[in-house]
Write a protein that binds this DNA or RNA. Structure first.
Lengths: 191, 191, 191, 191
DNA sequence: GATGAATGAGACTTCATTCAT
DNA sequence: GATGAATGAAGTCTCATTCAT
C-alpha cells in the first residue's frame, strides 16, 4: 500500500484510458508514462514489457467483470429471468464502476498480443454465462440457439450499445436500460 | 482485364485479410506486399499511402454492404417482418460473398485513420437501417428503443456471431440462420 | 558543459562538415550519426527532423558571420576604406574560426528547405553590407553599381577564393590576404 | 538528325532546367521524363544512368563556355584590357545563349557525381583563363595575385551577379554590364 | 525504338527498451 | 527505486533502374 502500488495503479489507469481510446498499437510507452506521471523507464520496473502490461491489464478487468456477473448469479439460480436480470445488472455495474474497461476488453479481446493466461481468463467469463444459458435451455426457458451465439448476441449487443453511450450518441437513462434488458431477454428467452 | 486491375485487386485482397485479422496498425506494408505477391513499392503505384489504402478498402466494402441490404428492402416495405428478413438475408449474403469484409468493417469503423468520405459512407449504411426502424416504430411494429440502440443490437449481435462462425466456434447451418433471425427479430419487434 | 550540449554540438559539427562537402540532399542521417558518434535516433532528440537541423545550423552560422562583420563596422564608419577593411577582416576571422561554415552558408543559401527564419537571418547579413555600400555611394567613395551587384562581387569572390584555400589549391598567407583585399577594394571603390 | 537527336536534346533541355533550379539530388528521373515529354525508360536509351546524364550535360556546357571565351581571345592577345573585354563578353554571350547553363555549371562544379572527364573539361576552362592572366602578369598588366584567386574573383563575381539577374533582383542593362566589366577589370589589373 | 509498370534498395523517422546517473 | 537520454530495429515511403509489351 506504499508508493509502489500507487505508481503501478497510475500506470494501469493511464494505460486503460489510452488503450481504450487509441488501441494497443497506437499507444506508445511515452504516452503512458506521461499519463501516469512517471518516467518511461519506471514502467519497466512494474511490467516486463508493453505486451506484459496489456495482458495484466486485460486479465485484471476481465476478472473484475467476472466478479460483477458472478455475484448476482449465485443467489437466484432457479428463475432464469431473474438470473438474466442479475447478469445484465452486473454488466451495467461493471461499466459504471470501470468507465473505459469494457471498451478496452472488447477492442483487445482478439489481439494477437494476448497470452494464454489472458485468453483463459476471457474464456472463464464466457463459460460462466454459457453454463447459465445451457441450464436454461435444459429447463426450456431459453432459446435453443448455440450457446456461443446467445453469448454473442448478449455481449455483442451490450458492448455496441455501450459504445454509443460512451460516444454520447445515446443518453443513458433508467428507461433505456430497462428496455434494453427487455429486448435482450426477448432475444434469448424461449418464446 | 489487364495486369493493372489484377495487381490492384491482389493488393485489396491481401489487405482485407490482414486488416481483418490483425488490424490496421499491426499490418505492415511488407506484409501486404507479400500477401499480394507484389513488391512493396508497387502498392504506392495504386494507393497514395497506407491510410489511403485502408480508406478505399473501407469504402468499397461499405458500399457493397449497402447494396446487399438495399436490394431486398426496396421491394417489401409494408411488412416489417418481411423487411427485416430482407435486411438479415442481405447481411448474410454479404458475409458469404465477401468473407473477411464484415469483420474488417466492424474492427475499423472507429479508426482514427478514416477520412471524411469513409465516415460518410458508413453513415449512409447506418441511416438506411435507421430509417427502416423508425418507420417500423411509427407503425407500432418495432420496439421503441432508441434506433441507434436497435442497430447496435442487430449489428453487434450479427457481427459477434459472424466472428464465431469465422473462427469455427460455430458451424453455419440453415437452422442456425433461421433461429438467429428469429432471435434478433424478437429483440427488435414490438411485442 | 553536460552531456546534452556535447551530443548536440557533435551533431552540429558532423552536419556542418557533411553539408558543406556533399550538400543537404546528398547527406544522409546515418552519415551524420556516424560522424557525430551517436545513434541515428539520437539526432531526433535534438532536432525535429533533417530540415530542422539544417535550418538551425544555417541560422547559427549566419548569426556568427553577422557578428564578425558587425563588430568592426560599428567603430570606423566615416572612412569607407577603413570600413571595408573591417568587413573584409571580419570575413577572414569568421572563416578561420569556423572552418566549413562559409562554404556551408554559400551552398545552402538558396536551398528550398530553408524556412522563413533562416531567410530572414540571411537577409540581415546582406542588408548590413548593403547599407554600408549605399552610404559609401552617397559619399562618392564607392562605385555606383547596383548594391546587390557589389555584394555579389565581394561575397562571390571571397567565397570562391575561400574554396580554393580549403581545397588547398591556394596557400593562405598574409600577402594573399592583403592583395585580395586590395583587389576587391579596387573593384568596389569609386576610382 | 532524326527523331533520335530530337529526343536526346529534349532530355538535355529538361535536365538543364531542372538541375539548375533544383539541383542534381532533388531532380528525379520521372521529372526529367515529363519535362522532356518522353517515357522514363527512354532516358536510359540515351544515357547509361542519372550520373552519366549529368556528366554529359556538364561537359557539353563547359565545352560551349570554353568556345565562347576562346573565340574572342584568339584575336586580340597583345592588349590585355582588350583580351579581358573579350573574355567578359564571351561570358555574357554564353549566359544569353544558354539561359540556365551557367547556374547549372556553378552549382554542380563541386558535385561528388562528376567523373574524371567532367573535371578535366572544367579544368581546361580554368586553365585557358589562367594562361591569359599569367601572361598578363608577366607583362605587368595584371595584378600579381595567385592566378587561381584572380579566376575566383572573375568567375565568382560574375556568377553571383548572374544569379541576381536570373532571380530578377537586378535588371540586366547595357550600363550594368559596362560598369561590371569596369569593376572586375579594376580588381584584376595592375594599378 | 519507346514506354511505363514493377521493383527493391535505401532514405527518413518512430518508439520499445536499456542503463548510467 | 526512479529517471530519461540514448539506441537501433523496423516501419513508411521514394525513386533509380529494369524489362515485358
Amino acid at each position: 500500500m506504499g508508493a509502489t502500488s500507487t505508481k503501478q495503479s497510475a500506470i494501469f489507469s493511464a494505460s486503460l484510458v489510452l488503450f481504450a481510446e487509441r488501441g494497443f498499437d497506437a499507444t506508445t510507452i511515452p504516452m503512458i508514462a506521461e499519463g501516469a506521471n512517471v518516467g518511461a523507464g519506471t514502467i519497466y520496473r512494474y511490467f516486463k514489457n508493453k505486451e506484459s502490461l496489456v495482458n495484466e491489464l486485460f486479465q485484471k478487468y476481465v476478472k473484475e467483470f467476472l466478479v460483477c456477473i458472478e455475484k448476482g448469479l449465485l443467489v437466484h439460480r432457479k428463475d432464469f429471468r431473474e438470473g438474466f436480470h442479475h447478469i445484465f445488472r452486473g454488466m451495467i455495474q461493471f461499466t459504471v464502476e470501470n468507465p473505459r474497461a469494457l471498451r478496452f476488453i472488447k477492442t483487445h479481446s482478439q489481439g494477437a498480443f494476448l497470452d494464454e493466461k489472458s485468453l483463459k481468463e476471457y474464456e472463464k467469463l464466457v463459460d460462466l454465462v454459457c453454463d447459465f444459458f445451457r441450464e436454461g435451455q435444459q429447463e426450456g426457458a431459453i432459446r435453443t440457439l448455440h450457446v456461443n451465439a446467445l453469448i454473442a448476441i448478449l455481449f455483442g449487443s451490450f458492448m455496441e450499445v455501450h459504445s454509443l453511450v460512451e460516444s454520447q450518441h445515446i443518453i443513458l437513462s433508467k428507461e433505456l436500460l430497462d428496455e434494453l434488458e427487455e429486448s435482450l431477454w426477448a432475444a434469448i428467452k424461449q418464446c
